[in-house]
Write a protein that binds this DNA or RNA. Sequence first.
DNA 1: TATAATAACGATAATCATTACTGAATGATT
DNA 2: AATCATTCAGTAATGATTATCGTTATTATA
Lengths: 131, 131
Amino acid sequence: MTKRFSAQREMIRDALTMLDHPTAAQVYDHIRRAYPQISLGTVYRNLGDMAAGGEVLRLSFAGAPDRFDMNTADHCHAACVWCGRIFDTDGSLPAALLRELDAAVEKSTGIAVQSRAMLFSGACADCRPVH
Amino acid sequence: MTKRFSAQREMIRDALTMLDHPTAAQVYDHIRRAYPQISLGTVYRNLGDMAAGGEVLRLSFAGAPDRFDMNTADHCHAACVWCGRIFDTDGSLPAALLRELDAAVEKSTGIAVQSRAMLFSGACADCRPVH
DNA sequence: TATAATAACGATAATCATTACTGAATGATT
DNA sequence: AATCATTCAGTAATGATTATCGTTATTATA
């Protein structure tokens, strides 16, 4: 499996660095400005393949379109309920805390935790003074 | 927001106690056996209203239909990747741990956590020996 | 380099979960 | 009983995502 290249996939990688946790539609809109003939299907297919291959993370939020994250490190997300921005927990979540959590979950449910999806919601620093 | 009654809604409440974290479609199928003229729209409308009123919890999972939980207490969920069953963490997640988590998230992202959605995945006790 | 094989593209149709709309039926209120 | 609101069943509409398909681009091979 050689490393695959296509101009469109490069544009998608580019969009992911420019945009912050974008949806497929946002990636599509971004690329369209410079390359109008891009297809939304192409964006979805590439993002899906990249997610399957571990090159990007696919994030699912309740009642909202999926978002994509080029940061593939193990981290959580926090969404601002006011401005909608999504923040990464940049690795500073103490691993010991997560291990404790996993242990508590296993004790309570019997599930030997392999992975977790955690989304925190609240007001971000910018929105807090305003609201 | 008074608690509403209708024969159909009662059937839905009933289905929620019989089934384990069912989807709207599963509730629909269950009711249909005894009451074939039930409408899927009625199931969705009632579940949505009940969730909005806090009578049930609506759970969103990545790439899967929403599920509904009559347990409205603050708790998390753990899914078995093998059998697909979903388990509640029955309140035994130490509150102190969650508070610690919230603090770590706020330190890392600036979000003052108001709520969290956490899903843990792994092998349940029944499936672990088999796989 | 020419060409065959393979993979990706753009366009569009199909799918799936969910919501919105409709006129009929049911239930509550004067 | 007459009105007025609520809920129903049925169905159409929506929005996100995936699948299909004929064409084009990229890679491998002669």
